[in-house]
C-alpha cells in the first residue's frame, strides 16, 4: 500500500477495564479483495487474542502511544474503558493523533456525563454514529470534534408533538389552578 493512501486508520477499539470488547471495528479498504492486514479484520479469534494482548500491554501504562505488532497504537485509558486507534507503522503519528483526538473529544461532547462504560453502552447508537462520522472505512473523515458532534443526532423522542402539547397544557393547567388558589386566598 502506498504511503499516500488515504486509508490511514486500521482499527478503532473500545475495551473495558478487564480488556473485554465494548466496541471494535477493523477497517479494510473496500472493494480490493486482498487481505492486507493479515486477515485481522476477518477472524474474530485473532481479533480477540490481539485485543487481549494489546490490553495487557497498555493497561495502567499511561504511555498514550506505542508500537504493537506492526501497528502504531494511540490510546487513552479512562476510568473503566480504554479507547484505541490503530494505524500503520508508516503513518504520520501526529495525523493519527488528530484522528484519535477527534474520536475521543467528540465522544466527550456527546456523552454528557463523561466517557465511561455505562454511558457508552447506554448511548451506543450515538457512539457508533460519532465513530462513523470520524472515520469512513479507514479514511479520516473529519478531525473537528464539534463538527462531528453536530452531525450526530440524538435518539428520537417518543411522539414528540403529543408529548410537547401534553406537557405545555399540563403546565398551563397546573399554573392556572395554582394562580386561582392564590387569588382566592388573597381575596
Amino acid at each position: 500500500m502506498s504511503s499516500l493512501s488515504l486509508y490511514s486508520v486500521q482499527a478503532v477499539l473500545i475495551l473495558d477495564s478487564a480488556g473485554k470488547r465494548v466496541y471494535a471495528k477493523y477497517y479494510e479498504p473496500p472493494h480490493t479483495g486482498a487481505d492486507k492486514y493479515k486477515a485481522l479484520s476477518k477472524s474474530l479469534k485473532k481479533q480477540t487474542e490481539f485485543e487481549k494482548q494489546l490490553f495487557q500491554k497498555t493497561h495502567k501504562q499511561d504511555s498514550e502511544v506505542l508500537i504493537f505488532e506492526d501497528h502504531l497504537v494511540l490510546y487513552k485509558e479512562y476510568l473503566d474503558v480504554t479507547l484505541y486507534l490503530l494505524g500503520s507503522m508508516e503513518e504520520n503519528e501526529i495525523v493519527l493523533q488528530q484522528a484519535f483526538n477527534a474520536f475521543k473529544d467528540s465522544l466527550d461532547l456527546i456523552l454528557n456525563s463523561g466517557i465511561d462504560k455505562k454511558n457508552i453502552q447506554e448511548n451506543y447508537d450515538m457512539v457508533l454514529l460519532a465513530i462513523d462520522e470520524t472515520i469512513d472505512d479507514g479514511i479520516i473523515l473529519e478531525t473537528d470534534p464539534a463538527t462531528i458532534a453536530s452531525r450526530v443526532t440524538k435518539p428520537p423522542s417518543n411522539d414528540p408533538q403529543m408529548d410537547l402539547d401534553k406537557g405545555l397544557l399540563g403546565a398551563w393547567g397546573f399554573a392556572k389552578s395554582k394562580l386561582q388558589e392564590r387569588l382566592q386566598q388573597g381575596i
Binding site: 499516500l4 488515504l6 473523515l141
Partner: peptide, 22 residues
C-alpha cells in the same frame, strides 16, 4: 446546526480531494 455545538471549519475536504487526485 442541530445541536448546540460550534463546529470549526477544518477544510478536510482538501485532504480527501488531494488523496483522490493523486
Amino acid at each position: 446546526i442541530v445541536g448546540d455545538y460550534y463546529p470549526n471549519s477544518t477544510f478536510i475536504t482538501q485532504y480527501h480531494a488531494l488523496g483522490l487526485l493523486y
